[in-house]
Every structure is written in C-alpha cells, then in structure tokens.
Simulated assay, not measured.
Amino acid sequence: MRLNNKVIIVTGSCTGIGKAIALRCVAEGASVVVHGLEQDLGEAVINEIEKDKGVLQIEEITNEGAPERLVELAVKTFGKLDAVVNNAAMILSSNMETTDLAFLRKVLDVNTVAPFALIKAAFPYLAKEGGCVLNIGSVNAWSGEPNLFAYSVSKGALMTMTRNLGDTLFRESGVRVNQINPGWVLTETEIQRKRSQGLKDDWYKDISSVYAPAGRILWPSEIAAAAIYWLANESGPISGQVVDLEQYPLIGRNPPKN
C-alpha cells in the first residue's frame, strides 16, 4: 500500500486519466475526493471505490470558492489533506484564427489559473502533512499540435508554474510539486473528440507507427501507475520536475519520411 492513509484530491476524476488516478490511489490505500462536472459519472466512480474511501464534489473548478470547497470537503470528511492532483482541463481544438481572447482566457483559467488556486487553498494543509502536488500536463506543453494552440499554451504555463513552485514551496515548507506530461492517451474524451473530427469509431485500432511505435496509444491506467510514484513517499525529496510519458522522444525526433 504505497499511499496508505493518505488523503488526495483528484480534479477532473469522473472520467479518463483523472478517474484512473483516483481508482489507483484508493487501490494503494488512499482516500480520495473525486471531482468533476458529470454527476452520474462521478457517482459511478464512487460506486467503484471501497466504502468510506471516496467522496464526490460536482462543480466547475473555476467557480468562485470552488478550490476552497474542495479542500474543506477533504478535511471535513477525512481529517487532513496529503496531496492534490491537478488533472481537470479543457481540451479543445483551436489555432490562431479560431482563438479569440475570451476563449484563450477561459482555457487558461481552467488549465492554469484553477490549479494554482487549488494549490494555494490546499497549501496550509499540505505543509502540515509534508504533502505534495502532482500537476497533469501534456507533451503539447513543449510546442503543441497546430490545432491545439490555446491548450498547448496553458500546459506550457502549467509546466513553468510547476518548476517555480516545486522549488520555492519545497524550500519553504517541504511541499513537493511535480508534473507528468502524458502523450496521446485513449480516454473517453479523446475517443469522442476524434469522432467529432470525422474519424471512424475504431480509429484508435489503426494508428501509424509514426505516432504509435507500440501499435497503440497510451491507456489511462498507465498514466495512473506513473502518478503513484510522485504521490508516494518513495519519491523522497524530488520536486520541481516534469516527466514526459510518451512512447517516443518529443524533442529531437524527426518523423520518418513516407
């Protein structure tokens, strides 16, 4: 039990990567606050969790006071708070032409500002427990796909925040802040997104080796397995680090010519 008796908030955990992380945390001995926007899906996650090991909060993370309410729920229900996983995010296609300022601000608000607000709200409790933060970024933070402009900008900003707080907070209080950058993951949202772009329902079964040398893309459970290391005590004093989770190097790799 690598997370025995720990209390962890996982935002955006009604589906996808967040759900996989929440379930894996419980399997490793933690209690979790499940958070998201879909009441039915959130209740389904809670029903998969051992009794008294999970509590659900359905609310838009950018609502005024939402971070404070998540922290309050964790402490009221379980008595403390050991870790925060900032996973909730908007993943919407956009480029320079289709991105107006209102859209960019909204994406930044969800993907970058809200994680900071939750860290700030949780900090007194994390400091008391010698806790940690795990930000869920994206390999797009390094440059970004052409049609993921706003999303990529927000994840780049999140990565810089991780580097900064991972140094300053650890020096001041022992609170570690790290980040994992998943690559292409087969989540429910990604399946729907590709379907909306006109791809066939089983598009993920036939992906070029340029993008998937393994013959498939990543599974949420694989990201969750990696997340546990950063939430567990075994990661020791490591802080301010960003780790890419993809099946090929993002930097310095040129796609083979057809």
Score class of each variant (00 low, 15 high):
Ile9Ser: 03
Glu97Gly: 10
Ile17His: 03
Glu60Lys: 13
Ala117Gly: 05
Tyr248Pro: 08
Pro146Leu: 04
Asp100Ser: 10
Arg171Gln: 15
Leu231Arg: 00
Lys120Met: 01
Ala224Met: 09
Tyr229Val: 02
Leu231Thr: 02
Met90His: 14
Ala114Trp: 04
Arg2Gly: 07
Leu250Met: 14
Gly156His: 07
Asn258Leu: 09
Asn5Gln: 13
His35Phe: 01
Asn164Gln: 12
Lys128Asp: 15
Ser143Pro: 01
Leu186Cys: 05
Asn47Phe: 00
Val185Pro: 04
Phe170Cys: 10
Asp40Ala: 12
Ile136Cys: 05
Lys51Thr: 14
Leu101Gln: 15
Cys132Phe: 00
Met90Tyr: 13
Tyr204Asp: 12
Ser138Lys: 02
Ile58Ala: 03
Gly198Cys: 08
Thr62Asp: 11
Gln247Phe: 12
Val185Glu: 01
Arg163Cys: 11
Glu43Gly: 07
Val32Ile: 11
Trp184Arg: 07
Val177Asn: 04
Asp100Cys: 09
Lys76Leu: 02
Ile223Leu: 04
Val243Asp: 01
Thr99Trp: 05
His35Gly: 04
Leu250Glu: 12
Val75Phe: 03
Arg193His: 12
Val133Phe: 06
Val153Ala: 11
Ala157His: 06
Val71Asp: 09
Met90Arg: 12
Ala225Gln: 10
Glu28Ala: 00
Arg216Cys: 11
Ala89His: 09
Val85Met: 03
Asn63Gly: 10
Val153His: 03
Arg105Val: 06
Leu81Arg: 02
Asn95Val: 00
Gly137Asn: 07
Ile58Gly: 10
Asn87Leu: 01
Met90Cys: 12
Lys205Tyr: 10
Gly156Gln: 03
Ala150Arg: 09
Gly54Val: 04
Arg195Thr: 14
Asp202Ala: 15
Leu218Tyr: 04
Leu126His: 09
Cys132Val: 07
Ile207Trp: 10
Leu165His: 04
Val113Thr: 13
